[in-house]
């Protein structure tokens, strides 16, 4: 094994990868959210043109491959870490009071991540797969992804699923954002309070805005 792979396979190296991929996913979420908000304030053509741009513009395509790798890497390493961490305590305490010393989200990153993963599979089937390989009718020269979205969010059950997934994301980020900086070694009396405040802010704001879109579309289109 080279020093490089050895480093990435150490306990600290695995966490470094989790932190880097996690932070990259957060940056992606922000751009994804900015694009999606066009479903609320833009026209049908704006959104469809934007969707085409995002799937065909070469630099964005390049970044999208990094994104797929990040999601896979983050999920695989995350589940591996969770499994290994369970094995580190083969006999559980008969009586345990973890609420006294840590937050609920910080202890349940594996479960929250798995919920996000299930959401991602369904979400990508509904829109990403359809956009790339599905038979979507064209409107004004663009694939009508907007129409696919409107159709999907007519189902209250599907919208509820989205809202619940975003709640899981909120809890995942509540711990994840500040945890990533700690994993990178960035703990400083001047900046850590700022990072924590920012983490709380974005972990509430991003999922809330994501969840708002299907709810508004359900209410206006049905």
């Amino acid at each position: 094994m080279s020093w490089f792979t050895e480093t990435l396979q150490s306990s600290l190296g695995k966490k470094l990868l989790m932190a880097l991929t996690g932070l990259f996913l957060i940056i992606f979420l922000i751009t994804h959210l900015a694009g999606n908000l066009q479903l609320l304030y833009g026209t049908k053509d704006d959104f469809n043109q934007y969707a085409k741009f995002m799937t065909t513009f070469p630099p964005i395509k390049a970044v999208s491959y990094l994104l797929y790798a990040s999601i896979l890497g983050h999920a695989v390493y995350g589940l591996m870490l969770t499994l290994k961490n369970r094995q580190a305590r083969p006999v559980q305490y008969a009586y345990n009071q973890p609420t006294a010393n840590s937050t609920w989200s910080s202890r349940n990153m594996g479960i929250l991540g798995t919920m996000i993963l299930i959401f991602l599979v369904i979400h990508m089937k509904s829109f990403w797969y359809e956009m790339h390989w599905g038979a979507i009718p064209e409107v004004n020269g663009f694939k009508d992804l907007h129409g696919v979205t409107v159709e999907a969010f007519k189902s209250p059950l599907y919208v509820l699923f989205y809202v619940l997934a975003m709640a899981a994301l909120a809890f995942h980020l509540m711990h994840g954002f500040q945890s990533a900086f700690q994993s990178l070694g960035w703990n400083h009396p001047k900046y850590t309070p700022l990072i924590q405040a920012l983490g709380t802010g974005i972990s509430l704001l991003i999922p809330a805005l994501f969840a708002l879109i299907p709810v508004v579309m359900l209410l206006t289109n049905s």
Binding site: L81, K84, N85, Q87, A88, R89, Q182
Partner: peptide, 11 residues
Amino acid sequence: EGFGNCSNTGA
């Protein structure tokens, strides 16, 4: 030694 990894829970 078989210790677990750090999840930064702060416990």
